[in-house]
Design a binder for these strands. Structure first.
Length: 519
DNA sequence: GTAGGGTTAG
């Protein structure tokens, strides 16, 4: 255009700047920025916002800020863009500062800020912000829309806050918002992550024929997470029949279904089809699934073969998968190697140190136990405390291991004591095999009995009427002892208990768990 | 001509 002697105008630049949207374009972006000055459009609000967006997309939030700071009276789009620029690189506090400084905010500003919190794991902050938006004095009189709701649903899902999520769903229906593919996917994902796979399926079935690959993938992963392997794979077949092309994420869900269902041959088959039939090159996540698939089934040497032959360096997730298989099948040598790799790749992984010292204890290598403990001390590594979340009456309650900070602590511990007494009467024996070896038998059992999920459970017994299903969300993997206890409680007290641990769902009912004791 | 939403192993 320039060679033809055509002069750009202020409308040319926003189009042009939009195309410079990743790091390799930073230099071109700077050159175009110079042209903006040259042609005198640096005071055009549309051009300014486009420049902020461009620098942010090219990975340079500080240049974005420079542009922003030059603007005398930034309009809403530039404020919102700069918030996004900071949020994108994880500078959540800076984003929030800017947000608080805004003279006014629209629904986009609020939605951006909520998304920012969700992106950095601040789920409760996102929900708090949503509540704030709805308060008339601070909320700028802004009403939420589909964009806002999608982010909020994502936060509910991550937290496992079913009551909150149901409320949001009701709000969406009441406000007449249209449930499009994106909002539908968000809803489905929320229900699946909150333990209600039935509701997720219901949303999915009501979504109509316009479902895209993300919508299908969300349902496939949801079913997998809940251990409904066959249904998940059937859905995958249906998706193909509907002419929707799967992507890499879809296959993570499919392989995950095979892992949780213990379907080794199926898993191998899908792994092959991925590339052969759909031209999707397996990524590290897929290799991780295969390692997991073999490991859980006790085929540790096959798992090793995958780890050694994969075309990329195994990451913490791959070593973690190998480790869980090795632990499950008591392969101490593999456990040791995997744990060493885990610590090497992430020296702050507290669980890895603890497990490694346990492995050495099991092998009787007491000097090694000491060495790992010292290393932990030296590096100042603290154990990540177990934490469980329950929602009672629409309020989220959080419990840590051995927590005594809840106002009703006394009652909770008394209730837990009653529950455990009844289990013991019925022959329950604590399963201490996963506990630290340093403690004596009695001490171990005591430590186990105050695991956060047990406290959360006791709290639910106090606060809900008999027969009410109990839903617990845990940050770590559920231990054998708690798993055994939950099974028995579901039978003895006739309660349905759903526990979401960091990997999957456990539906306890009538003394059995949906994971078939395979997790 | 500018700003915002959903799926991802253990």
């Amino acid at each position: 255009m320039r060679l033809h002697g055509v002069e750009p105008d202020n409308r040319t630049f926003p189009f042009l700047l939009q195309s410079l949207n990743s790091t390799p374009y930073l230099q071109s972006g700077k050159r175009i920025h110079a042209q903006v000055f040259l042609f005198g459009f640096d005071r055009d609000p549309f051009v300014q916002t486009s420049l902020i967006h461009m620098y942010s997309a090219c990975g340079n939030p500080m240049l974005a800020r420079q542009v922003f700071d030059e603007i005398a009276q930034p309009d809403l789009p530039s404020w919102n863009s700069i918030i996004n620029a900071f949020a994108k690189v994880g500078l959540i506090h800076v984003a929030r500062e800017v947000f608080d400084q805004m003279p006014q905010r629209n629904v986009i500003s609020w939605s951006c800020m909520m998304k920012a919190y969700v992106m950095c794991g601040g789920y409760k902050e996102a929900l708090g912000l949503f509540r704030e938006m709805q308060m008339s004095d601070r909320g700028d009189g802004v009403r939420p829309n589909e964009f806002t709701m999608s982010s909020i649903l994502s936060a509910c899902g991550r937290l496992g806050a079913l009551e909150h999520g149901k409320w949001v769903h009701a709000y969406i229906d009441k406000s007449g918002m249209k449930i499009d593919v994106v909002l539908g996917t968000a809803l489905m994902n929320m229900y699946a992550k909150c333990g209600s796979i039935e509701r997720a399926k219901c949303v999915f079935d009501n979504m109509g024929p316009s479902k895209d690959v993300m919508a299908w993938s969300a349902m496939i992963s949801g079913l997998a997470m809940h251990g409904h392997a066959t249904e998940s794979l059937e859905l995958f077949a249906e998706m193909i029949k509907c002419g929707v092309r799967p992507n890499a994420v879809t296959f993570v869900g499919v392989l995950c279904a095979c892992v949780h269902g213990g379907l080794i041959n199926e898993g191998k088959k899908y792994f092959r089809r991925m590339d052969e039939e759909f031209g999707i090159k397996p990524m590290i996540q897929h290799y991780g699934c295969i390692v997991d698939l073999y490991g859980r089934s006790g085929l540790i040497s096959d798992a090793w073969k995958v780890v050694i032959s994969m075309p990329m360096e195994p990451d913490v997730l791959v070593w973690g998968a190998l480790l869980s298989g090795a632990r499950m099948h008591r392969d101490v040598e593999t456990s040791e190697i995997a744990l060493k790799k885990l610590i090497q790749l992430d020296p702050t992984n507290s669980a890895a140190y603890v497990l490694l010292s346990n492995v050495y204890a099991k092998m009787g290598k007491w000097s090694e136990v000491r060495r790992v403990r010292d290393l932990m001390e030296e590096r100042g590594i603290k154990k990540v405390p177990g934490c469980s979340l329950v929602e009672v009456g629409g309020v989220l309650h959080e419990f840590f291991v051995g927590d005594d900070s809840h106002p009703e602590t006394r009652e909770i511990y008394m209730m837990l004591d009653e529950i455990m007494k009844r289990l013991k009467m019925k022959g329950f024996v604590g399963n201490t095999s996963e506990a630290l070896l340093q403690l004596d038998e009695e001490g171990k059992e005591l430590a186990l009995s105050f695991h956060s999920e047990k406290l959360a459970l006791a709290f639910c017994f106090l606060k809900t009427s008999p027969g009410t299903p109990i839903r617990i969300v845990k940050n770590l993997r559920i231990c054998c002892d708690c798993h055994d206890a939950m099974k028995m409680i579901s039978k003895e007290f006739d309660r349905e208990i759903v526990v979401r641990d960091c990997n999957r769902f456990h539906h306890f009912r009538e003394g059995l768990c949906s994971c078939k004791d395979y997790w």
